[in-house]
């Protein structure tokens, strides 16, 4: 099967730059859409996750019950299913989201739960005397969070947070199932048109170009945390 292929054939099939002539525009447009989805989702889910964490730390049983249910729901629901329900299901109720909106909504909804949990553990890891000291200095609750707890929690949480951000960027590729021309979809369109897998390989390289530095950064951070302990 494989043995009648030489190195030149593989180069001709997977790295055929003639196929890509004039197609880079569409591929870079896809990359831009991917980056847009990822950036918006990262910003929103980080901010919302912080709020979820702060609400959970208040230790009110009703809010906790609600948010734990939400967390378990998010942990047990595949993103594909959620995307399909939001994008193909909700229009039956006359609620229509554009593909971009539904992608962002679903990704933010799912990842907020994880990021909230990360922030909660980060804030809980800070010594309690810090809060007391802040209160004795006369800071109110919001000021305590703003100046004392959140900056420190951010440093503790950074490895987990970077991991989640990587996850968000990866999950943008799932949005191919919607009618949105993000990187993978653009590559698939070109590959189907030219009957050659080079665009798929190129799009993979683009993903890796973004994600490998992030992964290495995350792994290094994790190692640092382990050593400090």
């Amino acid at each position: 099967m494989m043995d009648d292929f030489g190195i030149n054939d593989i180069k001709h099939i997977f790295f055929n730059m003639e196929v890509m002539d004039g197609q880079w525009g569409l591929l870079f447009f896809g990359l831009w859409v991917t980056i847009k989805i990822a950036a918006v989702s990262i910003i929103f889910s980080t901010i919302l996750g912080l709020f979820v964490a702060i609400v959970r730390i208040q230790n009110s049983s009703a809010y906790n019950l609600l948010l734990i249910t939400y967390l378990e729901f998010c942990r047990a629901t595949p993103i594909v299913v959620a995307l399909i329900v939001v994008y193909f299901g909700l229009p039956f109720l006359n609620i229509t989201f554009s593909p971009f909106q539904s992608a962002v909504i679903v990704i933010v909804f799912v990842h907020t739960a994880y990021i909230g949990e990360a922030f909660r553990s980060g804030i809980l890891a800070i010594n309690k005397s810090q809060t007391e000291a802040a209160q004795s200095l006369g800071l109110n609750q919001i000021q305590t969070y703003q100046y004392i707890l959140v900056p420190q929690a951010f440093r503790i949480v950074l490895p987990t947070l970077a991991n989640q951000w990587t996850g968000i960027i990866k999950d943008t590729s799932i949005c191919t199932i919607l009618a949105i021309t993000e990187l993978l979809k653009a590559a698939q369109i070109i590959a189907a048109w030219k009957a050659n897998p080079t665009p798929l390989v190129m799009s993979t390289f683009m993903y890796l170009l973004i994600l490998i530095p992030l992964t290495i950064f995350t792994m290094r951070l994790e190692k640092n945390v382990r050593i400090k302990k």
Binding site: F5, I10, F14, K170, S173, T176, L184, I216
Partner: peptide, 25 residues
């Protein structure tokens, strides 16, 4: 580990299913 931690699942599945048949796999 770094390679497969950073490649999105969707991309890999599409790559394996749509690109490998070109080399007869």
């Amino acid at each position: 580990v770094v390679l497969f931690r950073s490649i999105p699942a969707m991309v890999l599945v599409v790559l394996v299913y749509f690109a490998l048949p070109y080399v007869g796999l």
